[in-house]
Design a protein around this nucleic acid. Structure first.
Lengths: 199, 199
DNA sequence: CGATATGTTCTCTTTTTGTTCTCGGCAGAA
DNA sequence: TTCTGCCGAGAACAAAAAGAGAACATATCG
């Protein structure tokens, strides 16, 4: 059995709403979206969707609609493929969805907003957000949040020198690496991700 | 079991308050925030939250509310502050959490993995992911996924010329803008975000 | 200690939300 | 044409939730 137009629209709206808000809408909200006044009519659509097995309804509960199994992972986006200059979009096999929470969300992580251009050659621009994992040590070459003399916090590449001192290397041709004794530099975290929103 | 709107609002306020002040608010403060007079009503919400396992309440204690471990939202990260070269980390007031789902997860969006260096001057590197919103038109200057002659897909800045033709502008000094008649260029989406994982 | 603030429990009323129903309009099929 | 299915409006009702506020218990602080 297939859905009518209105039932399909209701279902589409439901999925989008849940993706955006994490909870189901009220019947009134669905009615507003469909441009109708009657909650009763909406209820009939929901009954049809429940009948088709697409949703489950908890009786008498506000927002008591659940999407069944379906593709309702909240934090996933479809990963369509690879794009390159001069090539058509290439599909990526065996990976059709990317879970952003697995990408970024772990314990002991936090977000910093970046000001300044010291990492611009690594594609970390002024205004970008970086995801930082709390750590007091880091491997050579990693991007770290370092606190110098308990005063200045910076974002730099870490380089350990043979004599035990530490060099903090910016990713910006106009800036110079700075060398410090190990005691002056305290590592606060390691950059594990970066993101940016355009609008 | 899921939360009602008011319970959710109470919970959101709690999390923000704790992040800001380090301690839980009083019932009166919660009531003020919700715009109601009754502490009793607030208490009922707290009971529901405790029932859901999101908080623990120490009886009769002022500010005796604790957030449970499980109350860490899966898709939010604490936004600690701003980091700049040569400055300590600066706390950002009134914004304690960043919801990555609000940032990225919307209907009609998908992710592409970028190959190539054509947008490197905009901080979009080889291997980065871009979040694309499906669209057939775009405003001048926006980064778009464009299909040329139904064959080649590229990531470029859009520039509309006065004669109606379209110029696709790479963000790479070594590459040149390319001009096409409007009929040859089909816009498939607008880049609304970008992210990258380092390990 | 007393005074005040805060949390707890309770009842009552109002509002919101979901549920069920009837009615009529409309379009396409028989 | 009639019949049927889908749609929308809205009334009436039930359940849940919200809000107010009183009364009391406990904590906190001078």
């Amino acid at each position: 059995m297939s859905l009518t137009d209105r039932q399909q629209q209701t279902y589409d709206y439901l999925r989008g709403y849940v993706a955006r808000h994490g909870v189901a809408p009220k019947l009134r909200e669905i009615a507003d979206h469909l441009g109708i006044q009657s909650r009763g009519t909406v209820h009939r659509y929901l009954a049809a969707l429940a009948d088709a097995g697409l949703i489950e309804v908890e009786p008498d509960r506000a927002r008591g609609i659940r999407l069944t199994d379906s593709s309702v992972k909240r934090f996933t986006l479809p990963l369509v493929g690879r794009i390159a200059a001069g090539q058509p979009i290439e599909a990526i096999p065996d990976q059709d969805e990317i879970d952003l929470s697995e990408f970024f969300i772990r314990p002991n992580r936090f977000v910093l907003k970046v000001t300044g251009d010291s990492m611009i050659d690594d594609g970390i621009l002024d205004g970008d957000m970086v995801v930082v994992e709390q750590a007091s040590t880091a491997r050579d070459g990693e991007i770290v949040v370092a606190l110098i003399d308990n005063e200045e916090a910076t974002l730099k590449h870490l380089r350990r020198n043979v004599d035990g001192s530490i060099t903090l290397v910016p990713a910006n041709k106009n800036l110079s690496p700075m060398r410090y004794s190990a005691s002056r530099v305290q590592i606060q975290g390691i950059v594990v991700g970066q993101f940016r929103a355009y609008r």
